[in-house]
């Protein structure tokens, strides 16, 4: 997918573990792992809002659009 998730980087910057974030936002560690490893197919606005609130960041700090990957997939 051309959208990549940089949750681990933001967590590292904030010095927060995935378990702690899981407890704060009320999302299971399994689901946060799916998001962190880039396996997620979709993210709810409510989840994104809770993560951004707890990590004090913008959605753009977590989600990135890879233009080259997108172009490569479109060419396939």
């Amino acid at each position: 997918m051309a959208i990549s998730v940089k949750l681990d980087r933001v967590l590292l910057d904030r010095g927060m573990s995935l378990t702690e974030l899981s407890e704060r936002v009320g999302v299971t560690i399994a689901n946060l792992s799916i998001l962190k490893t880039g396996k997620a197919k979709a993210i709810r606005f409510s989840t994104l809002e809770a993560i951004c609130h707890e990590l004090n960041c913008q959605p753009g700090d977590i989600l990135f659009f890879d233009e080259e990957d997108s172009a490569a997939k479109a060419a396939e």
Partner: peptide
């Protein structure tokens, strides 16, 4: 179902 399972 797969999409639902992989929706966070």
């Amino acid at each position: 179902k797969e999409e639902q399972d992989l929706t966070v």
